[in-house]
């Protein structure tokens, strides 16, 4: 009898809990709904369509002829894939360093060293210009700047100042050019995020550090960096995922050339689909990339600790952490 009562009691409790969950979900729906709809429309639907297309031999006829996993098997036998994978790793790694590293330096320069608000804004706006420029214009500026003839801006500058003969910058250094061009765009985003984070550090910490006689380097190392731990992690994850799938600047500046030297994964997929009209194969290449991007996202969130980033009251925790770091610093100073 008692057992029955307990079971009924448990049932009622679980029903109550599920009702509570449903009520919470319905309460959140008006807030989540629009985003959920957009995610389904612009992510889930295209991914599903890409997956279905990857199982077809769709070509210039644009017909859905199903061929099973043929495109995937072809991908793993394609002799061009090795170069493309290596290029992608190089491109993502080095561009990420510029995006996060240079973005961090810009944030420090404009938010810590420049105290005048107007000058700070001016510098930040200048660095934001590439991001505000349409990609085609930005790419054309690079092409003109690095034009291989004497008329090219860089060649003419180096020629007049140092007598250096005209160089073919893009053809000789395609990967370096696309990394720098992409890096400078990404750095501006990093600069904005990190600047905001630096500005949100309570000024007491800086004052305390100054009173203790900390140098600028020590303030950066023991006050700013610990506070910027989460923004740096966020930018690293965000930029990694965005770089893996980006290709528009590479397409416009080198088009993956010369000889596949700057061909990255997403551009490889684009070329197969839109230059060779192999839409099915191009979709399969994209699908493998989507899987890898998802795996990297999960891995990075695990490594960086997604739960810790999302934990409520994290700012206070951070302050404590930073405080601990500065305390250590006090001893050192």
């Amino acid at each position: 009898m008692r057992q029955l009562e307990m079971e009924i009691c448990e049932n009622v409790t679980s029903k109550k809990a599920s009702m509570e969950g449903l009520r919470k979900f319905l309460g959140a729906l008006p807030f989540l709904g629009p985003f959920l709809f957009l995610i389904i429309l612009f992510y889930l639907v295209p991914v599903t369509l890409t997956f279905v297309m990857s199982l077809t031999s769709m070509d210039y006829v644009l017909e859905w002829k199903f061929v099973g996993l043929e495109n995937y098997l072809r991908f793993f036998q394609d002799s061009g894939v090795k170069t493309v994978v290596l290029n992608t790793v190089k491109y993502v790694f080095f561009t990420l360093i510029i995006n996060v590293g240079f973005g961090f330096l810009l944030a420090i320069a404009t938010s810590y060293f420049i105290r005048n608000e107007n000058i700070r804004l001016l510098f930040q706006t200048i660095w934001m210009l590439p991001r505000m420029t349409p990609p085609v214009v930005y790419a054309l500026l690079w092409l003109w700047f690095l034009d291989p003839t004497e008329a090219g801006m860089l060649n003419s500058f180096l020629g007049k100042l140092f007598g250096i003969p005209a160089q073919n910058w893009i053809l000789n250094n395609p990967m370096k050019v696309v990394i720098i061009a992409n890096g400078l765009i990404g750095a501006s985003l990093g600069m904005v995020v990190f600047s905001a984070a630096i500005k949100s550090i309570p000024v007491d910490y800086f004052r305390a550090a100054n009173v203790d006689g900390a140098s600028d380097w020590q303030i950066i190392r023991y006050v700013i960096i610990p506070f910027l731990k989460w923004p740096i992690m966020f930018m690293t994850i965000w930029q990694t995922l965005s770089l893996i799938t980006s290709y528009e600047y590479i397409l416009l500046i080198t088009d993956g050339g010369p000889l596949n030297k700057s061909e990255v994964w997403s551009l490889f997929s684009y070329h197969k689909a839109f230059s060779n009209y192999e839409f099915g194969y191009g979709a399969a290449i994209s699908m493998v990339l989507v899987l890898i991007a998802v795996l990297i996202a999960i891995l990075m969130l695990k490594v960086f600790g997604y739960d810790a980033i999302m934990r409520r009251g994290n700012v206070d925790g951070m302050r404590g952490e930073a405080g601990d770091e500065s305390n250590k610093n006090h001893v050192a100073v």
């Binding site: 291989p148 008329a151 073919n168 050339g257 010369p258």
Partner: peptide, 12 residues
């Protein structure tokens, strides 16, 4: 022939 012929601009 310039070794970078394939990266030159049409107009140039």
């Amino acid at each position: 022939l310039p070794s970078g012929m394939t990266s030159m601009e049409w107009r140039q």
